Amino acid sequence: MKLLYEGTITNQALRKQQPFYMRQLTMDDLPVIEQVQREVIESLPEKAALQPLSTEEFLFILQGHGLLIGAFVDEQLIGFRALLIPEIDEEHLGLDIGLSESELSKVIYQEISVVLPDYRGNRLQQKLADVIMKEVPNLTQPFRYVCCTVAPMNIPSLKDKFLQEMHIGSLTEKYDGMQRYIFVKDLERPNQRYTDYITAALDDMYTQQKLLDEGYVGIGFKLVKGFHEIQFAKPV
């Protein structure tokens, strides 16, 4: 078993540090993957904030169409993160951000990322992101774009994506009419520069959509009078 990361983590319920490690997940891990996903969804006050993966989707990833990385304490799975090599169809996220059909094969999705409640507050989602993104060059084909969807009021996921220097490229309806941001990161342009900075309230979807239509992208949060606003700017 190849370990991808080793460190310590705080169990918030026990209030103590514990050693943990990360490794790639396999078909043998599927039952516990789904159990952890169920536990995390049950713990959420707003269930619609997280789009779960089905058994078929987990199988698709585990059969060579992506990557799953898990974090473990004493052989117990406490969190995981997924990358998916998507099928190219009319729902492809690359189309939502304006990519040409020839570029769609260069897109990989960041899928679900979950952490059990007892281990939140350790920036484990970000650590899982760092580890799984380092594995992208080892996949079966080269990728240029990383895309994902995030519910507009899912603050932890928004912070997670901005910390990874992803930006909001689109705001559209997905999953049978649910509004979602489409985040993207261009791996070939890691030091993107911006101009014309402006903010919009987190719940002002009309202004945000107008800014996106005018060529702005969402690049982060800004505190305005104690409230989070989305910071927009134009790529240079």
Rank of each mutant, 00 (worst) to 15 (best):
N138I: 06
I41H: 00
R38S: 15
R81K: 14
Q125D: 12
Q231S: 07
I88V: 14
S54D: 06
P235R: 02
E188H: 14
D203R: 07
E57C: 04
E214F: 09
P190K: 04
D118Q: 13
V224D: 08
E229W: 06
E75H: 13
K2R: 14
L128Q: 02
E56Y: 11
D213G: 11
V136F: 08
M22K: 02
K210Y: 12
T195L: 14
Y197L: 11
M153T: 03
R123D: 12
D89F: 07
G218W: 03
E39C: 08
L67E: 10
Y216A: 08
K2A: 14
I168V: 15
L30D: 00
G64C: 05
L202N: 02
I198E: 13
L211T: 02
F183R: 03
Q12N: 11
P142A: 12
K174M: 13
V146A: 10
E87I: 12
E173W: 10
P235T: 03
Q18Y: 06
Q76A: 12
S105I: 15
P190A: 05
Q12K: 13
R193K: 13
I155D: 01
H65R: 10
E103P: 05
C148E: 04
V32T: 12
K225T: 10
L128F: 04
M22P: 02
G121K: 07
E173Q: 15
D196M: 11
V131K: 02
M205P: 06
K47Y: 01
N191V: 13
E101M: 11
K161C: 10
L158E: 02
L171V: 08
V131S: 03
L68A: 15
L95G: 12
E91N: 14
E57W: 05
V115W: 09
A129L: 08
L95D: 07
E57R: 09
L124R: 01
S102N: 13
M133F: 14
A233P: 00
R193L: 14
G66D: 05
L14V: 08
A48I: 10
